[in-house]
Computed example of a mutant assay.
Amino acid sequence: MNENAVRPALRPARGSARLAVAGLGLAGAAWALRAVWQVRLAMAGEPASGPPDQGEGRHRPLNALENSYHLVSAAGDLLVLLCAALFIGWLWRMRDNARALSGEPPRYAGIWVYASWIVPIVNLWFPRGIVADIHHKSAPGQKLPAVVNVWWALWLVGLVAGVGLTYDDSTDEIIARAYHGVTGLLLADLAVVGAAVAAVLMVRTLTDTQHAHIGD
Rank of each mutant, 00 (worst) to 15 (best):
M202R: 12
P105V: 15
A22E: 11
G129L: 03
W155L: 14
T207R: 02
Y179W: 12
T171R: 00
R93Q: 14
M94L: 10
T209E: 10
L206W: 03
M202H: 10
L26H: 01
G215C: 00
A9V: 11
P8I: 06
P127A: 01
D168E: 13
L201W: 13
V21H: 11
A191Y: 02
A22M: 12
T166Y: 08
T183G: 14
S49W: 04
H70Q: 03
A196I: 01
V203W: 03
V21E: 14
R93L: 09
I88S: 02
H136F: 06
R60P: 00
R14W: 13
R34L: 11
G55S: 01
L82W: 08
R95M: 00
M202A: 15
M43T: 13
T205D: 12
D216E: 11
V80A: 09
A98V: 09
P106N: 04
A161T: 15
S116R: 15
R11E: 05
S16N: 06
L101V: 09
P47L: 05
E173R: 11
A188W: 11
G15K: 15
T166V: 14
R204E: 02
G55A: 03
F87S: 04
V157G: 07
A20L: 11
L124C: 05
I214D: 04
A98K: 06
L206N: 13
H180I: 12
P127K: 07
K137W: 01
C83P: 01
G25R: 07
P51N: 01
R34P: 01
A35C: 11
M43Q: 14
A176M: 09
V147N: 02
T209D: 10
M1A: 11
P12R: 12
W125G: 02
I111R: 15
V6L: 14
K137I: 01
V80D: 03
L156I: 07
S116M: 09
